[in-house]
Amino acid sequence: MHVVLEAVLRTCVAYFVLMVVALWIGKQVNSHTNYYNFALAITIGSFIANMGFDTNLHFMPMIASFIALVLIYFFLSLISANSRPFRKWLSGQPTVIIDNGKILDGNMKKVRYTLDDLNQQLREQGIFDIFEVEYALLEVSGKLSVLKKTQYQNVSKKDIYPTNLNENVILPKELIMDGKVVEKNFNHNFSKQWLEHELKLRNLQPEAIQYAVISSNGSLFLDLYDDHLKSPLDTE
């Protein structure tokens, strides 16, 4: 009976600890959007199971190890939030599978991604003809993100009431992230000099910009660190 009561008590404490951790970092872990989130979710499950049911293991060392694991995750998240190179190394990057309607078999081999996988994930998004796809990226989470060719995209109000039709669809290019210029994404159409000119017109410096990206229709999107919002929405 003593063993049963101990198992019940350990399970209750383990569940309470898990709920506290879930409230703290639950959104990041549940998303499984990168490698270390996925690894942490599996490890947390193993810790909680052992804390609750394996009475041969001492409970306090297990709790200490569990807290240490969560703190390691927290500090890694903190570092990755302030360092894009570290974030790319820790979280991974998406892989381009289709570029300008062409299947990149070299990239597919690198990530061991087959044509059967590609066709299945396209069908899951309601695409049965690969000819409709302009760009496709395999995300770190394993999901396939697809940009259709212009003629196969869903109709929007902008199509019904066109103001600035642009038939050229490109893959969005990030030019500034976290106040730092992404040098490798410049090309002859969108050069560093072009970006400097656009920022000069707006009286902005790269350090003041959180995110700058060339959208799929070729327009420049800018998001500043200081958005000057008097009453920003907060759903927390």
Rank of each mutant, 00 (worst) to 15 (best):
G101M: 07
V213G: 12
G92D: 09
L137K: 09
N56Q: 14
W24D: 01
A22P: 05
H228A: 04
A68C: 03
I214E: 05
N168E: 06
L171P: 05
F47M: 07
S141G: 07
L69Q: 03
N187H: 07
N107E: 09
S216M: 10
T33G: 13
W89A: 03
L104M: 10
N82Q: 11
P85V: 03
I72Y: 06
L144F: 01
L229A: 06
I25L: 04
L78Q: 14
L71R: 00
N119Y: 10
N50M: 04
V8C: 08
D99E: 06
S156A: 02
T114R: 01
V4L: 03
K180F: 14
N107Y: 00
E139K: 10
L122T: 03
S191T: 15
L23R: 15
D54E: 09
H228P: 03
L229Q: 07
G101T: 08
V4K: 10
I97L: 00
D105N: 01
Y113N: 15
I127M: 04
Q125A: 12
N50R: 05
Y36Q: 01
W194D: 06
V13I: 12
D129Y: 14
L71D: 00
Y15V: 06
I130Y: 12
K184T: 10
N37H: 13
Q205E: 09
F221P: 09
K27D: 06
G126Y: 11
K230E: 14
K149R: 10
S141W: 09
D227C: 13
L171T: 03
